[in-house]
Write a protein that binds this DNA or RNA. Structure first.
Lengths: 248, 248
DNA sequence: ACAGCGCTTTGATGTGTATCAAACCGGGGC
DNA sequence: GCCCCGGTTTGATACACATCAAAGCGCTGT
C-alpha cells in the first residue's frame, strides 16, 4: 500500500523536484539528517519510514536492547538515561524535534530512552538505514557529524557534573535549553521546560530539592521568570551564561 | 627527504605486500585506525606522517585551537581536559597507545590535551587525512567507530560523575584501567598508573585527598596492592567491578 | 649518606548538598 | 465549587566529601 503511494510520488518528483507526502510538510526536515538528501533520496527513505507516537512516560528503548529501529524525532522531548543497579539514574541527554535517536554503528543502545511528553517519531529499520548510509557517503558524513556534536555536548556535561556547583549547573541547564529550543532575542529567551524537576535533577547530578531551591534563587535574582507551567522566561541570558561558567 | 624515502618504500611494496619502514615495526598499528588500511594505503599515509615526542606535562593541544594536526598515540598517556575560568579542571578522558587524538569533523579540539608521561605521536595534517577519509570509506567508517566508542565511554562517565559515590568512582577507575591497558588474568590484573592522584581526582570529580583515602581503603580490603610506584595489582577484578556499580 | 623537594597519605574540621519532612499549589474530576 | 493528588517548594537536620594542615615517603642530586 505505502509502496504504491511512494511510487506515485516518485512520478510527481521528476516534475516538481520537491518532496511530496509527509516529508513535504515535515517541520523538522531541515533540522534532521534528511536535510542532506536529494529529493530522490528522500523519496527512497520516505518509502521505508513509519511514524509512531509515544505517550508521556512511555519507554521507547531499553538499554542493551539489540534494536532494529532508529528514528528522527518529529516532535516532543525524549530523555536518554542510564541506571545503576539500585535505581540511581543519570540522564545523559535530551532529544528534541529534529534530533536523531539511535546508534548507527554499535547496533545497541547504551542507554534507555523515555518519552518526556507526547513524542512523535519517524522510524527506520536500522539495517536498511545502514545500507543507505553505506550507499550515500553524505548521509554517513551527516550521521558522523551528529555523533561528533553529541560527543561535544557530553564532554561539556562531564565538566558540569564533575566540577560545577549547584547554581552553575542549574544556570547551565537553562542556557542549554535556550540554545537548543529557545525563542531567543538579544538578551532574553523564552523556553519550554517539559521535564520535571526530578528529571532536571537527574540530568544535573543533583536532587529535586536542590534544583527547586536554585531555580527559586534565580527567580529572586530576576534572571528567570515563570510564564505559566512548563514555560519560562530567561530575562538576562548573558548574565546567566556567566553564572553557568562560574565567573560570578 | 622523507618523501624520497617513502617512494623507495613504495617500490618495495609491490614485491613484499607488507608494510615497510616505521609502519612495519609499529607496535600499535593493529590497534589504531591504520589497521583498516591496505598495504598500499598504509604507504600513502606513511608518506604524509611525522613523528613527535612530548615530554611529561607538555601541552599538546590547546582548547579551541583550530589545529591542523591530528595523531595516533604510539606510546605514552595523554590526558584530555576542560577548564573553568577559575581553574577548576575536569579530565574528560585518557588516551593510550593506539588511540586517536583529534577531531576529524569539527576542525577544532573542544579540549586541552597534555602529555602525562613521555608521549610519542604519529602525526598527520588534518586536511590531508580528511582527504584520505573522503577517498576511503573504510577509513571514515573506522574513525566514526572511534567517535562512537568515545561517546559510549563519555556517557558511562556521566553516570559516574553524576551519581556514583567516591568508592564507586575509584573502583570504576581501576576497572577502566584494567579493561583498557591491563594485563588481565581470570580474576586479577596488573595495571600501570602513570597519572598523579590529582589527575585521577580531576577525572573522577573528586579531590586528591578523597582519591588517596579510597585507594588506601581498597588496599586494606585486599582488592588492590602496590607493585612499585605507578604499577598496581588488582587482586579481585570481579569484586571491584561489583563495587564500581554499587552492588556492594 | 644526606638534604631537599614533590607527591602522597593521614588527620581535624568545615560546608554544600542530600535527606527527611511538611506545607503549598494547580489542574482534573465529581 | 470543592476535594483530591501529583508535583513543587520550603524548612530542619545529617552526612559525604572538601578543605585546611601536617606528617610521611621516595626520588634526585651532591
Amino acid at each position: 500500500m505505502r509502496m504504491g503511494g511512494a511510487t506515485a510520488e516518485q512520478g510527481c518528483l521528476r516534475l516538481k523536484q520537491v518532496p511530496t507526502g509527509r516529508c513535504a510538510v515535515c517541520g523538522v526536515r531541515q533540522a534532521s539528517f534528511c536535510s542532506v538528501l536529494s529529493t530522490a533520496e528522500l523519496q527512497q527513505l520516505h518509502a521505508m519510514s513509519s511514524q509512531k507516537i509515544f505517550e508521556p512516560g512511555e519507554l521507547i528503548v531499553e538499554e542493551d536492547a539489540s534494536v532494529r529501529q532508529v528514528a528522527n524525532v518529529l516532535s516532543g522531548t525524549i530523555k536518554l538515561f542510564k541506571l545503576l543497579p539500585d535505581g540511581r539514574q543519570q540522564i545523559t541527554g535530551f532529544l528534541f524535534g529534529g534530533d536523531f535517536l539511535g546508534p548507527m554503528l554499535s547496533g545497541e543502545y547504551a542507554t534507555f530512552a523515555e518519552a518526556v511528553n507526547r513524542v512523535e517519531l519517524c522510524m527506520f529499520d536500522q539495517d536498511r538505514l545502514r545500507e543507505r548510509m553505506d550507499a550515500w557517503p553524505h548521509l554517513e558524513r551527516r550521521l558522523f557529524e551528529d555523533a561528533t556534536q553529541t560527543l561535544d555536548r557530553a564532554l561539556d556535561w562531564m565538566l558540569l557534573l564533575g566540577r560545577k556547583t549547584a547554581t552553575e549547573r542549574v544556570a547551565s541547564f537553562f542556557v542549554m535549553l535556550a540554545d537548543r529550543v529557545g525563542e531567543k532575542n538579544d538578551a532574553t529567551a523564552v523556553v519550554e521546560v517539559p521535564m520535571s524537576r526530578s528529571d532536571i535533577a537527574d540530568y544535573l547530578g543533583l536532587t529535586m530539592e536542590t534544583v527547586s531551591r536554585q531555580i527559586s534563587q534565580l527567580k529572586r535574582a530576576g534572571l528567570l521568570a515563570a510564564q505559566g507551567q512548563h514555560v519560562l522566561e530567561i530575562r538576562d541570558l548573558p548574565t546567566l551564561r556567566r553564572r553557568a561558567e562560574g565567573s560570578q
